[in-house]
Structures are given as C-alpha cells and as structure tokens.
Design a protein around this nucleic acid. Structure first.
Lengths: 153, 153
DNA sequence: CTCGATTATTTTAAGCATAAAATATTTCGC
DNA sequence: GCGAAATATTTTATGCTTAAAATAATCGAG
C-alpha cells in the first residue's frame, strides 16, 4: 500500500469510528434524558463509584473518565446536591476529598445501568454476535497503538 | 453465546469505541488549538464546504455533520466574521441561505487538512496497515446495524 | 386570495468540556 | 522549622451541544 492509500485508509477509519460513536452516544444521551432526566457524564461518575464500595479519591475520577478535573467539579456538585453521592474531606490530607455513592445513588444507578445495557443490546442487535470478539480485539489494538503514539514525544 | 456474555461483549465494544474516539479526538482538538487556534467543529464545516465549490444550503450542514441546527448558528457566524466563508440569502426562498467558502478560507482549510492527515497518520502509525480494511469493514457494518436499529421504532 | 401548516433558521436555557489561573494544603530540601 | 516546589481542587473564560421555543417566510387547500 502506498503512502497515499494508507492515508486514505486512516482517514476512513477515523471517520467511521467517529460516526459510530456519535450515533450511539447521541441515542444513549437522548434516552438517558427522556427516561431518567439524567446525563451520561453523571452516569459515568456513578458507574465508577459503583465499583468502589469504600469510595474513591476525587482526583481519581478525571483520570479514569479521561476528562479534565475542572469539568468534574459541577457534575460532582450536582450529584451531591441530588443525594446520589457524598463528598467528604480526608482527615489525613485536607486537600483530598473522598467521594462515595449513597444507598439511594446505588439504587438509582443499578436501575439506569440495566436500561443502559438493554439500550445497547437493542442498538447493536443487528451486528453479528460472532464478530464482537474480533472487533473488540481490533479496537483494543487501535487503542494501544494510539496510546503508544501519544506516549512517544 | 448466552445472553449474559453477549451483553458483556456489547458493552465492551461500546467502551472500546468510546475510548478510541475520545483519545484521538482529544489529541486532534489539542493540536488544532495549539497549531492553528482553531476548533474541530469549525474545521468540519470547512471540510464540508471544500467539497462544494458552489456552496451549500445552510440547512444541509446539520444533516451532514450530524449536529443540531441551532448548534451551527454561532459556528457559522464566527466563520463568516473571520472571512473563511460567506452566507448569502437565496433569492428564490428568503428563508434559505447559501454558505460558500472564500478563497482565503479554502487556502486556510487546505493547510489545516494537510496537518490533520499527518497527525492522524502519526497517531495510527503503530496500527498494522494490512488490517485497516478489515477494521473499516467492521465499523461500516456496525454503523449500518445501529442505523437500522434507530430506523425501526 | 387567505389562513393554517410546513420549512428554515435563530434564540434561549442548561449542561458539558477544556485550558489556564487561582487557592489551599502538603512535602521536602536545607 | 522555613520557604519553595508539588499536589488537589476550584474558578474563570470560552466554546460546543442539545432541546425547545420563537421568528420568519413559503406553500397549499379551500
């Protein structure tokens, strides 16, 4: 494959990737809004905390969710205000805060997560099941390749 | 594959997809900003107009870019103010406007598009070239499957 | 021809996202 | 222990994004 063709293939991969993500994300956002009056970023925060019964250091969230720290402040604020999570200053280091899901938050999250899974199943239903593993493998490799490329400089 | 396993595979596909897109998009955004003081949505508008020498009906842009109409108003406003595009009311239908790239806009776009291609090549360099076509095919199928699922209701 | 429906576009309100600056606290070299 | 560097978090400014309401122009049925 010459340089030109490789360039074209790379652009095509990127555009397809973006189209698939935009399509799915848009529909999931719409349903979260319509069914639960909730947003995906809020759901993503709860999803992280669901796996951590003892809570998480606040600073861990931006890393796991791949967003900026400043971004999370108002999102966490609102989740606290709505009673889904708590935010408690650490006694050992007063710069640090621990965020932890409340019982109410966990209950709400589980209900939404169930729907989330069902929506995804509905959206991906027409994709042949025996090719999921192949696609996952390709995407994993792609992710690794991009990560490596970002590491270099 | 049982229901459970299929669900897990679907979630994994979605998370990988999102991770890849977020990773690449973030880096491209950063570079657009650092190198050209430009944003991706602005670039996307120019990319559409680059393929239309005689311009486009404004209402065509939200459809092609898969964004809402209201979203484009301030973006187009600024591109006009910066001299990259023109916006002229149609004589036949005064509701309609035609947007068209200026000579300056076209020059700027081509310069940025060249860098954009190079950045993408850099980010995807470690992904084996002989597997691009396979991945493109999978993503095309995925996109089609999701589109079909969205059509149904 | 005229009024109601449709279509194109903008405005508004709310929230997400980033980068960069600000604030507050801790840690570490000396 | 003191002051400088490092770390955790919030604030600020700017821009993207959507949904829904508003505006404006055209179309179409009678």
């Amino acid at each position: 494959m010459d340089q030109e063709a490789e360039h074209r293939a790379q652009t095509r991969v990127w555009l397809r990737l973006l189209a698939c993500t935009t399509l799915i994300e848009g529909e999931l956002r719409r349903r979260f809004r319509d069914e639960f009056d909730f947003t995906m970023p809020r759901f993503d925060v709860l999803a992280q905390l669901d796996r951590e019964p003892s809570g998480l250091v606040l600073g861990e969230l931006p890393k796991r969710l791949m967003v900026s720290a400043g971004n999370l402040t108002p999102i966490v604020d609102r989740l606290v205000a709505d009673g889904y999570i708590t935010r408690t200053p650490s006694n050992l280091d007063r710069r640090v805060q621990i965020v932890c899901m409340t019982v109410e938050g966990r209950k709400t999250f589980r209900r939404m997560a169930k729907s989330h899974g069902a929506w995804l199943a509905e959206l991906l239903a027409d994709f042949p099941a025996d090719r999921f593993d192949g696609l996952i493998g390709e995407l994993d490799e792609l992710k690794g390749a991009v990560r490596d490329a970002l590491q270099k400089p």
